[in-house]
Structures are given as structure tokens and as C-alpha cells.
Design a protein around this nucleic acid. Structure first.
Lengths: 340, 340
DNA sequence: GTGAAAGCGCTAACAG
DNA sequence: CTGTTAGCGCTTTCAC
């Protein structure tokens, strides 16, 4: 029951409240005998410390928040997010933190959520999913004094901590792979240009083309929104330019793009090749299987939590920056097995 | 800043702590003049009450938890969940509650999460996503004294509150529609038989067949797991029985099943018709567009929160039961437009 | 209508 | 190594 207090345990174990507190919090300087006796009483009574009292006295809530800004609309459509969330939840659990979820849907949500996450003492720190350039929530949160790490690089990085996947390198590898296979008209479906993830993957595409002597053809580039439908329509826009390969900035967009290509009676990879980005399970289940850039999403979420905890314990300065590597997963859609 | 206290505001407004507290909590019996002055000070100072102190004194945390048991593996693959979560988050926001997310992944997670959600005073109530029969977490949570509502009907319902979609009726309508269109060999891809949602949708299928004079052919029934891949393989198992229509217990399984049918060179809906369940956005974006049973997922999550709050405020007894209706959305895959 | 005072259950010096 | 003693910041009687 929740109605047991430290005092009750102390009485039953024949010690003082402080001693029980020390045992509960695993402090040193408690004799083995006493520790054992107290632990026993806790065990049989099923005592559980009161979270609020502990937070009030220690000024630590052992709770962190995940804030998803309004501009991250793909949160509800991209399988990337469930996996990210799972990694974050695991990180919290493993380190005995509680996870608060703050989905900002409207302006009113914003007004309620902002003060609560940044100044009520509810949270020890926050994780903010990177969104679009100019997102109010992000800008205002970054200015607060609460420990914060951005999941995904923000546009302005001065003084702020973040963890990000090396999107430039990942995209570069994807496109280089396509170039090596001999494709001549390599197009791309980018992410939103208002997000760093969109910009970076485009940058990797450009870099790979340049380094390998291809010139960038604007008619082979179009913007998507990280949804299946977005990929589908983007592909339809690209079709007239007759690409022979496509680098899609996310698997889910690649799936939509492939659907569009198939409807246009193109064979994959014979008529047109595809490389995605993410390696969501979906990518490996379909036929033809998607060649893609694997990013360790689960691990990414887990690490984000660990960085945040480190920040909480050792201060915001200096800002921590962590880049996570990716891996090219060659399957069917790139046509590598045809040995061009 | 979080370092302002009630005391500070009281001093600046020239009143006592109690009065400020009354104003903050919107209590009556405060003169208009005083209320206005206090509100003003709060406004300009940006005072935000300390959550832990408030919780400790009032024994209310204004926080609820969403617990996702281990047996709900489709949480990470079914687009249903992001929408549910969004509805829940919205409900919390609107009622000034904070949402805690507890994803149970492993046995260890379970040990850490259970005491925390049920006896630490951290939460005022919990929402538990229904999972498989025999899931430990669910059984143990249900026995605790904390206000709780199950999202989805559990197998044993005595004394427990839940909100559920009327799955029997929804499935019944889906299959009746197929029968009316004249299909003769209507198969189904069910959800897990260890979940009530799986059982209920199967029940609706059976009922519709019976009432309309069809006999149930076991070779036309196979179990899926609410994943795309599961739907795909299930369809492959069904193909030899030569069904002319399929009721899939979820849209995402329908998508997988359609893929399998297409690979077998079946035209949809000419050779085989499909009806799904959920109406996730995906269903409306593909070609042919999926006929399905729409369930108001977002609203469902929102209502779950409201029921829980009602429970928190008025006690667990008697148990509240809410059933939510569904709607048949006729699109392309059922072949209705061919007017059979 | 307003203020004083007593906790809520815990942590963390400070003694001893 | 252990106990005593202040708070942490707020809500909530109970007087006035």
C-alpha cells in the first residue's frame, strides 16, 4: 500500500528514519546487519517511497520528459518514432527514471506544456524531438534553464546539446552505392527542407554526386514529407525526368515511391533502383526487399536518455554533441546482385 | 524561474500564502480586488507552482500513466497506436494532467514499473492497454487499488472499468457487407486468439455468416498478429482455399494480405475482395483504396482519459463500461461499386 | 474574506 | 555508523 511511510519502516526495524532512508537510497555507512534488517522489513511490508516527498526534499524528480513539437507531424505516420520511443523508455527504465510524454498538437497545448516542462520542478530534464526551422516550442524550450538534449540536430546549435545520426554520411553512402552500380540518372526524394534531417540527407546526395563526377539535375530532386503518400506523389513528379535510380530520404517514402513506380509499370530494380533510409522492419518484409541505410533508432533513443542524465548530473556546460553512425544494408531494390 | 515560491508571490502582493494558494487553485471566497492583484503578480513574475510540493500536500499528482504490457507487441508496428496515444495526450492536456508513459519490454521493466505505477503516489490513475490473456502486468495491476481503466476489454471483467470498441458489431457489419455483395467464399484473417479484440472480431465474422446462411469453413480462417508481414503470410495460407473475399481484422494486415494476393496475380476486387478494420490513413492512400471499419481511435484515447478522471474523482465503484461504435467505410477493395 | 499554523513524507546536514 | 533536526513548497483546517 502507498500509505506506509519511512517512519513506519523505521519503527518496525527499530531504527531511525534517516537510517531507513540511507538504506533505501543505497548510501554507504550503514552496517550490514542493520541494512539487512531494514531491507527485510521493506520486503515484507512492500514499502514504496512516496515520489512527491522524495522529489520535494531532494529537488530531483527522477523524471524526464519527451517533448514532440507540433512541426513533427510524421510522429504519427513514421514507424521510426515507435522505435525511438521504445529506446527512450528503455533508457529511462534502466536508469530508474520515469518518462513523461508531451505531444504538442495545438497552440493551446503549447501554452500548457511549456511552463509545466520547464519550470514546475516536474522534470529533471527534457528530450526534444527536432522539428522544423522556426518551431516556437523548440526555440522557447532551448532558452529555458532546464537540462535539455535535442534528438536530432537543430538549426542553431550554439550552446545546445544534441544527438544525431550522421545523415550526411548515410546519404552519401547510399548515393555512392548507386553511383558505383553504374546508375546515370539518380534522383532523390528529400525530407522537408525546413528540417536538418531533410537538409543533411540532401547534402549527402549532392556530395556523392559531385565527388563522383555527376552533375546535379534539379528535375531529379523533389521534396517529400516522410509519409508514404508523400513518397508516392513525389515519385509521380519525378517520373517524367526518367530517373534510373532513387534515393529516398526515408523507407516509408521509398515504399510509397516504389508503389508509384510499379503503377507506372516499371520493374524494380531492372527499370529503376531504390535505396531508402531507416531500415524499418517493413523494409525487409516486402518484395523486392529494400536496400537502405540502417540507423540504430532504438539505440539512438537509449543513448539520448543517457546523455540527458549525464547532463542532469554534471551540468549543461559544455554542450554535448553525439553523432551516430549508419550502415548500408544491401538487399534487392538497388540491383546490386545483378552486378552492373 | 522555478525558484519562486508561493511565499514570494504573497509578499509581493501583500497577502498571505493561503490567499495566493486560493487564487492559484481557483477557490471561491477571495475578493475580486485581491484576486486581481495576485494574478497580476503571478503574471509578471512568471510564477509556476512546484509540482512536487503540491502533490505532497494535496495527495493528488495530476498525473496519469499509460501502461503498455509486454504482450502488446503491435504497439511498435500498428499505426493504430500513435493515434491512440495522441488522443490520450490530448485528453491529459485538456484536463491539465501530465501523461507518464510506461512501456513494459522485459521482465525487469515489469519489476521496476509495477511498484512505481501502483504504489508510489506518482500517479492518480492508470490506463492499461489490453493485451494477451494471462499477461502478468495486467493481472497484477488490476489487483492494485489505484484507479484504472483498461483500453480494450480484458478477459475477466469483474469489477474492472474499461472502454472498448464494439468489435463484434464492427466485424459483423464488415462481413455482412461482403455477404450482401454476393461473395460466396469469405475468409478472415483474425487477430491473436489470446486477445479479446481478436476473439471479438472473429465472433462478428461468425455471426454474420451464420445469420445469413453461410456455413463457416475452417480452411478460410487463419490467425494473424496485427502486422503487415503477418497479414501477408496469413493470406498465403488462405490462398489454396480459394476465397473470393477476405475480412482482415486490421488494416495493416489487410495491406499485407493484398500484397500477397497481388503477388499471386489476383486482381482486386475482381478476383478477390477485401475489407479491413481501423481506417488508418494508409488505407485511404493506396490504390485500390481499402474498404474498412472505421473506429474513432483518437476519440477513443481521449474518452479513455475522461473516464479515468471521472474514476479518480468519484471512486472506482461501480466499474464503468463504455462501448464505442464503428462505421463501415465503403471504398474500392470490396467491389461494391461493381454492383454485384 | 483572510491569515496562522500544522502537516504531507522525505532528504540531508550536523552531531555524536 | 546512527539519530536528531530542519526544512523542501504547498494545501488545508481552524480561527478571526
Amino acid at each position: 500500500m502507498a500509505d506506509l511511510t519511512l517512519e513506519d519502516i523505521a519503527k518496525q526495524a527499530g531504527v531511525s528514519r534517516s537510517t531507513v532512508s540511507r538504506v533505501v537510497n543505497n548510501h554507504p555507512h550503514v552496517s550490514e546487519g542493520v541494512r539487512k534488517r531494514v531491507l527485510e522489513v521493506i520486503q515484507i511490508t512492500g514499502y514504496q517511497p512516496n515520489a512527491a516527498a522524495r522529489t520535494l526534499a531532494s529537488q530531483r524528480s527522477w523524471m524526464i520528459g519527451l517533448v514532440v513539437p507540433r512541426s513533427v507531424s510524421s510522429f504519427f505516420t513514421d514507424p521510426y518514432f515507435p522505435h525511438l520511443t521504445r529506446g527512450i523508455a528503455k533508457g529511462c527504465n534502466q536508469h530508474d527514471y520515469t518518462l513523461g510524454l508531451f505531444l504538442v498538437g495545438t497552440k493551446e497545448d503549447e501554452e500548457k506544456i511549456l511552463p509545466r516542462v520547464s519550470r514546475s520542478g516536474l522534470l529533471d530534464g527534457i528530450l526534444v524531438q527536432a522539428g522544423h526551422h522556426g518551431d516556437q516550442v523548440i526555440d522557447r524550450l532551448v532558452q529555458s534553464t532546464i537540462p535539455l538534449v535535442m534528438v536530432g540536430r537543430p538549426f542553431h546549435t550554439e550552446g545546445i546539446s544534441y544527438i544525431d545520426v550522421d545523415n550526411i554520411e548515410g546519404a552519401y553512402n547510399a548515393v555512392s552505392h548507386l553511383v558505383r552500380l553504374g546508375y546515370q540518372r539518380i534522383g532523390t526524394i528529400t525530407g522537408p527542407s525546413k528540417s536538418t534531417v531533410g537538409v543533411d540527407r540532401m547534402e549527402g546526395y549532392r556530395k556523392a554526386l559531385n565527388e563522383r563526377g555527376h552533375t546535379l539535375d534539379e528535375s531529379l530532386v523533389t521534396e517529400g514529407d516522410f509519409t508514404e503518400a508523400g513518397g508516392y506523389y513525389a515519385m509521380q513528379r519525378l517520373l517524367p525526368a526518367k530517373p534510373d535510380a532513387i534515393f529516398a530520404a526515408s523507407d516509408i517514402m521509398a515504399v510509397g515511391a516504389i508503389r508509384a513506380a510499379q503503377e507506372a509499370d516499371l520493374r524494380i530494380p531492372d527499370d529503376i533502383a531504390f535505396v531508402g533510409f531507416d531500415d524499418v522492419p517493413l523494409a525487409n518484409h516486402r518484395d523486392p526487399k529494400l536496400t537502405t541505410i540502417r540507423q540504430p533508432v532504438y539505440q539512438f533513443g537509449f543513448s539520448a536518455v543517457e546523455i540527458l542524465i549525464e547532463l542532469i548530473e554534471n551540468g549543461r556546460e559544455p554542450a554535448r554533441r553525439v553523432m551516430v553512425g549508419t550502415e548500408l544494408i544491401i538487399r534487392d531494390t538497388c540491383g546490386a546482385s545483378r552486378r552492373r
